[in-house]
Amino acid sequence: MAGSHATFWQRIQQIPRYYIYLLLAAVVTWQILFPIALPILPSRVTQGVYDAIAAVPDDQLIIISTDWDASTQAETGPQTEAIIHACFQNGKRFAVMNLQPPMGVKLANDIAQRVAAEYGAEYGVDWCNWGYKYGFDNVLIALAKNIPKTIGDDFHGNPVTDLPMMEGVENIESVGLVIEITGLANVTELWIGLIQGVYGTPLAGAYTAVMVPSYYPFLDSGQLRGVLNGAKGAAEMEVLVKRPDRASAIMPVQSWAHMLIIALIIIGNLGYIFGRRRTTERPS
């Protein structure tokens, strides 16, 4: 009898990974088909990003650096979309740009075009796309001193100086906020080292959830005004801009997937604790 119990406790410590994969797939499918939507409360760090956008003076523009690609677009795509909504709703002009990987600028351009159409915003007047710029730190060093010269042509190959919104834009003094949206490590550190730290330009970030813990030191020091934390941060921003969309739709899935993982960890530990107790109780 005791032996069969021991086997059970041992068994629940070693559920084959295929069953775990199947369980997770089942939970995800269940929540996609029949979502249990719960209220989403914007966090302090998301509110920080929104407030930073709202606080940009009208004579300055926002740089949205979209350094992400297809792999992380489940998180960074909705983040970009919600941030662009926030810019349009607050009447802020913005420029999309991209340092790496080059694919990001096209994906972000598609989003910006779609959202701009909703607000009747005009390219070149309310927003523009500076395109992919090669050279990381060299780009940022030059950008700070001379934006038109560094950017040259926009995403469509036209000189940025021809765009009405670029009139009077000379250097980093014309920029009221930089928002770095990325799944890449170390890009934010460049913005901090070369722009925020040197010129005091406000900076905010939007990252994949796994990266966010490493950016809390910069939040704490005030070098980052706010952070969007993965899909959850995007969903919170969607709440703030009152446009529940893809990220909000992901939240029930993420909620129950997290619950499943917690349940699995508890089951594994019950097996570990009771399995050990049975083993120690058994006469040697």
Binding site: I15, V28, D69, A74, L260, I267, G268, I273
Partner: peptide, 26 residues
Amino acid sequence: FMPLQAATFSLLAFYIASAAYRAFRI
């Protein structure tokens, strides 16, 4: 190429579930 990239990144959800279940013991 792009769907392959996104699909491979999505695999992480499955891997983290099984790794967390297996590794997290008190």
